[in-house]
Computed example of a mutant assay.
Amino acid sequence: MATFEEQLKALESVVERLERGDLPLEEALKLFEQGVGLSDGCKKELEAAEGRVQVLLQNRNGTRRVEDLDLEA
């Protein structure tokens, strides 16, 4: 299975090719379908990571607190 980063890079490549607008319809549809699959895979990876972060932020009394992550730091 490809890593999140590999899937994201492949998705970016698909989007770039589709945005050029020079593909025959059938090829564009196949690429779009591939892109949807890659997007779904990335979404699942992100949801799993979010779940792991929430568990790590779990308070000692057992309740979860959800915090926004400062990704710019």
Rank of each mutant, 00 (worst) to 15 (best):
M1Q: 13
A2V: 07
A2C: 06
A2Y: 12
A2W: 10
F4W: 10
F4Y: 13
F4T: 06
E5H: 09
E6D: 13
E6F: 05
E6S: 11
Q7L: 15
L8D: 14
K9S: 12
K9L: 11
A10C: 09
A10F: 10
A10V: 09
E12S: 14
S13N: 14
S13P: 03
S13W: 11
V14F: 11
V14A: 15
V14P: 10
V15E: 15
V15S: 07
V15P: 11
V15Q: 14
V15A: 08
E16S: 11
E16W: 05
R17M: 07
R17D: 11
L18Y: 02
L18P: 02
L18Q: 11
E19R: 07
R20K: 12
R20P: 00
R20H: 04
R20E: 07
R20W: 01
R20T: 04
D22I: 01
D22W: 04
D22Y: 03
D22T: 04
P24R: 06
P24E: 09
P24Y: 02
L25Y: 03
L25F: 03
L25V: 03
L25S: 04
E26R: 08
E26C: 02
E27M: 09
E27G: 05
E27D: 12
A28H: 01
A28D: 02
L29Y: 01
L29M: 06
K30G: 06
L31Y: 02
L31S: 05
F32V: 03
F32G: 06
F32D: 14
E33S: 14
E33M: 08
Q34H: 14
Q34W: 12
Q34D: 15
G35K: 05
G35Y: 06
G35I: 08
G35V: 04
G35C: 12
V36P: 04
V36H: 09
V36W: 10
L38S: 12
S39C: 12
S39L: 15
D40M: 07
D40S: 14
C42R: 05
K43L: 15
K43R: 15
K43E: 15
K43P: 05
K43C: 14
K44C: 08
E45V: 10
E45F: 12
E45M: 13
L46F: 07
L46A: 12
E47I: 08
E47S: 03
E47N: 06
E47T: 09
E47Q: 09
A48E: 07
A48P: 03
A49D: 04
A49F: 03
A49P: 04
E50G: 13
E50Q: 13
E50N: 10
G51S: 11
G51K: 12
G51P: 06
R52H: 05
V53N: 01
V53G: 01
Q54S: 08
Q54A: 05
Q54I: 06
V55N: 04
V55I: 07
L57A: 02
Q58K: 08
Q58P: 00
Q58E: 00
N59L: 01
N59C: 02
N59D: 00
N59Y: 00
R60V: 06
N61I: 00
N61W: 00
N61L: 01
N61T: 00
G62T: 01
T63E: 00
T63Y: 00
R65K: 05
V66W: 01
V66H: 01
E67D: 07
E67K: 03
D68Q: 15
D68P: 11
L69S: 04
D70F: 08
L71Y: 11
E72S: 14
A73Q: 10
A73W: 09
A73S: 10
A73R: 14
